[in-house]
Design a protein around this nucleic acid. Sequence first.
DNA 1: TGCGCTACGTA
DNA 2: CGTACGTAGCGCAG
Length: 636
Amino acid sequence: MTSGPTVLAGGGVVAALRAAGVGRNEPLAVVAVGAGLGLASGRGGWAVPTGPDAAGVVTRIEAELAPRWVWWSVHGSPAALVAGGLRPAACWDLAAVHRLLHGGRRDDPAPVWAGARGLPPPAPVPTGGRPVGRGQLDLLAVAEEAETGGDLDEPVRPDGQLRTDWADERWTDPRWDGPAGDAARTLRRAVRWAELALTVRDAQEQRLGAHIDPRPRPGPTGLAVLTARAESAAELLARELECDGLPIDRPTAERMIAASAGPRPRDDADDGSIRRARDAPVLAHLPGGVDLRNPASVRSGLRAVGIDVPDTRSGRLERLRGTHPAVGALLDWRKAERIATTYGYRWLDTFVGPDDRLRGSWQGSDGAGGRMTAQAGLHNLPAELRVAVAAEPGCLLVRADLGQIEPRVLAAVSGDPALARATAADDLYAPVAARLAVERPVAKIAVLAAMYGQTSGAAGQALRQMRAAYPRALAYLDAADENGRAGRDVSTFGGRLIRTSSVITGSAGPGNSTSSGNSAGSGDWAAGADGATVAARGRFARNAVVQGSAAELFKAWAVTVRHALAADRPAAGPPGGIVLCLHDELLLQVPAERAEATRQLLHDTLTATAGYWAAGSGVRFVADVTIVRRWSEAKA
DNA sequence: TGCGCTACGTA
DNA sequence: CGTACGTAGCGCAG
C-alpha cells in the first residue's frame, strides 16, 4: 500500500486486469474521477488515467471481461459512465443493497459505510456536502473532523465513520491539492475509494448470505443475495431509462393537448383568454363568482344549484351526472384541466427532448415497499395520452404485464398451499370464487380486502370466508398487520427491511399527525398513537410486505429481461430495450422484426425468474404480452 | 417561500 | 376507515 496502486495506461488495462485474474462476474469496483478511473478487485487496485474517455475504457473492460461492477451508488461517479454509454451486464450497488438491508432511502456513502461496519448512521448530507438537521453542532463536527482526522488521504475517521469530505466524492478540494489539483493524487484516492467499496460489498454479501430464507430453495445462492443483485441492476436500469427516455409521437401529443387545453398560448394574455374559454361552459351552469380551481368555491356553487355534496371528488360527482348539467360539465372540465396543467405544453416542452423522447428521473427503489418511482409524469400519464407513446419507425412496442401479481405473490410468500393451487388458473379469482362459493367480483374484493386491510362494506363477510379457506395467507397478512401496529419492522420476501417505525408518508400513512417526524423511538411509538393511526400503520405493513415483495419480483424480472435483450442485441440496427417500468408492467421498444421473439423472451424470462424467486412454492406467474405500435393499443 | 389540503393520474 | 406513488393549484402561515 505504501508504494501506491499500479498505474495502468488506458490501452493496456484489459490485458493487465485479465493477467491479474479479473474475470466474468468477479467484483470489480470502479470510481470515476476527472483524471480517470480507480479500480479495485480482490487481486489489487489500479489507477487508470483515461482523460475524457473513461466511459470508453470501462466499456472495453465490460466487453472483454464482464466483471460485476461495484459502485457506491450508480447515482455517484458511475452515472457519467452510464451516460457515456456503459451498459454492463452485472453490478453491485452498495447504496441499493444498503437500502435493502437497512431500509430508508439514503444514497450517500457515509451511511452505507456505517451500515456495513455496524456503526450508527451519520446525519444526512445534502448535495452541498454539509450535514443538516442539527445546525451548528454538525458544522462543528466537520471542523473537528478536519482537525482530528489526520491524514487527508485517509477516508476513515478515528471514530470509524467516513470523512464527509471523502464521502461527497469531490477530492479536488484546494485544501488538499491547491487550486490546480493533483491528478495523480486524486487517482490514488479513487483507487482507495474503490478498495473501500469492495470491503463494503463483501460485508454486505456476508450479511445477505446470513439471511434465513423464508422458504427453502435450491441452489447455492440465497434469495437475499439474488435480490441484492437484482436491486442493483434495477438502479442501473433506472439510470438507463433516464438516458434513453420514452418515445413520443410529438404531433399526436400536441393534438391531444390541444383537444383538452386549447391551442398553444402565444403569451400570458392569450393564455388567460384560452383559460376563460375553457371555463365558460361550466360557469354557464353555475352562479357568478365561482372559481373552478377552488374546491370550496365549487362546492358552494353546486349547492346553489341544489347539489349538496360533502366534497367535490369526481367519484362522488360521477353518480350525480344526470341530476344537473353543471355536474357533467364540471367533470369534463376537470379532465381537460388536468391535461392542461399537468400534461400540457409546459410538460411537453420540459420533459420531451428534441429527439422526441420523454425523460424524467427514475428511482430504482423508493417508498415503503421499494417500488420504482419516476418523475415527469412517467408513472401517472393519463390513459388518454398513451396514444402519444408510439414506437419509432421500424420498431414496435411490446407491452407485458404481470397478471394478478399481488395475490400470486401472497401465495408464494405465505406458502399457502390452497392459494398456490389457485394460481394454476389464468384468472386466479375464478378458483377463489369457487372455493368461497361466491361470485367472482366478491372473491376479488375479498382478496383485495385481505391484502389492503379493508374492513368496511361487503368485504367483512368475504374476509371471514377467506380466513377459513386460506388460513396461511391470512395469518401471514395478520402477522404483518400486528407488527405494523406495534411499530415493529417487517421484511419483504427478498429481505428488504421496511421500517414501520420511521416511515413518513401522507396523512393515511403510519407517520401522520401527532407523531411528527421520525424522532419518536419505537418504544412510545404505539402508545402515543390513537386507534385510527395504529390501524393505519397495520394496513401499511400488511400491504407493504405484499406490494414490496411484488416489486422485488417485478424488478428481478425486469433486469432479467434487460439482460436477455442485451444478449439478443442485433448485429446491426437499433437494439431493443426497456423504455418504461410501471409496477407490474414493462414497455419495450424493439425492432419490428424482433417483436415476436421478444414476446417469447418475456415469457421465458418470467419463467426463469419465478423459478428461483418462488422456487418450491408451486405458484404460477403469468404475463400478458401484446405487440403494438402505440401504447394505447395494448389492452388494459 | 414553504406547507397542508384537495384533487386526480397511475399501479 | 383499502395501499403505494407524483403533480398541481389554492389558501394560509411565515
